[in-house]
């Protein structure tokens, strides 16, 4: 018998993650680990992981890792990449980290066209702190701090930060994918591959936003969570390539 799915080289062996059942982080972690291997960048990669559920990502990724303060990932990544342009640098951030407390760092690193890749997990809530409202929370979505559902009159509208940065000239590749089933896995892997290749080719900044399940804080089963992404989240956040300037740069 031959094993068809080898354990990814850059994923630590036989760990059981702290993520809840059905959490999208595990799937994205595996995809990233596979791509680091397939694209042969794992040896020179540094991942900046966030404060949030993925704060312990260094227990899973078997590459050099730097933990960031909440929201500061792209500033740290900027420091790494500027000091060592030969390294492959990516951040892994959630929606609270990237689009609330780290908005300034996100926007300015993108606008400077830093040669980094941002993996952006959008699950429309603060996960690790227990399901509070995020900038990305959908209108009407109930969270612990919007118990009656997000009301735009009080709490504003869902923030489309990836659409925003995609308008910047320094952002070479931006895509939003919906991790809502097997096809979503394939699309996510393809998008991250394009984003990584953008950096490998020395073209500039790339970002992939992944609509990702948080069954625990959504108070749904994992299977229902995947349906909710497909039926509700994608209505607010349309998946697709938001900008692709790779052709202009080459």
């Amino acid at each position: 018998m031959k094993l068809k799915n080898d354990w990814p080289k850059y994923y630590k062996k036989d760990v059981v993650s702290h993520y809840c059942p059905g959490c999208g982080h595990g799937i994205v972690h595996r995809i990233v680990a596979e791509l680091l291997e397939e694209m042969q960048v794992g040896e020179r990669a540094i991942c900046v992981n966030p404060a949030g559920c993925a704060v312990l990502a260094y227990l899973y990724f078997d590459i050099d890792m730097l933990e960031s303060a909440h929201g500061r990932g792209t500033a740290m990544a900027t420091g790494i990449k500027r000091a060592r342009p030969d390294l492959f640098v990516f951040t892994y951030q959630g929606d609270g980290d990237l689009s609330a407390i780290g908005t300034a760092e996100t926007i300015h690193s993108a606008n400077r066209g830093e040669h980094i890749t941002v993996i952006f997990i959008n699950n429309a809530v603060y996960g690790m702190t227990g399901g509070q409202m995020a900038p990305t929370t959908l209108i009407g979505q109930e969270t612990t701090t919007s118990p009656l559902g997000r009301n735009p009159a009080l709490e504003g509208y869902p923030l489309h930060i990836t659409d925003l940065v995609a308008t910047f000239r320094g952002v070479i590749y931006a895509e939003r994918v919906s991790l809502d089933g097997p096809a979503g896995v394939t699309r996510t892997k393809k998008a991250i591959r394009n984003a990584f290749q953008t950096q490998i080719d020395g073209l500039g900044y790339s970002i992939v936003e992944i609509l990702s399940a948080c069954p625990t804080n959504w108070k749904m089963s994992p299977v229902d969570s995947f349906s909710w992404i497909k039926n509700e989240m994608t209505r607010e956040y349309t998946p697709g390539v938001l900008t692709d300037k790779r052709g202009d740069k080459k």
Binding site: L3, N5, Y19
Partner: peptide, 16 residues
Amino acid sequence: MICTSICPDLVIEVYD
């Protein structure tokens, strides 16, 4: 390989 691709915890192995 759909099961291995969707598994968040890398617990499934498929053999030929």
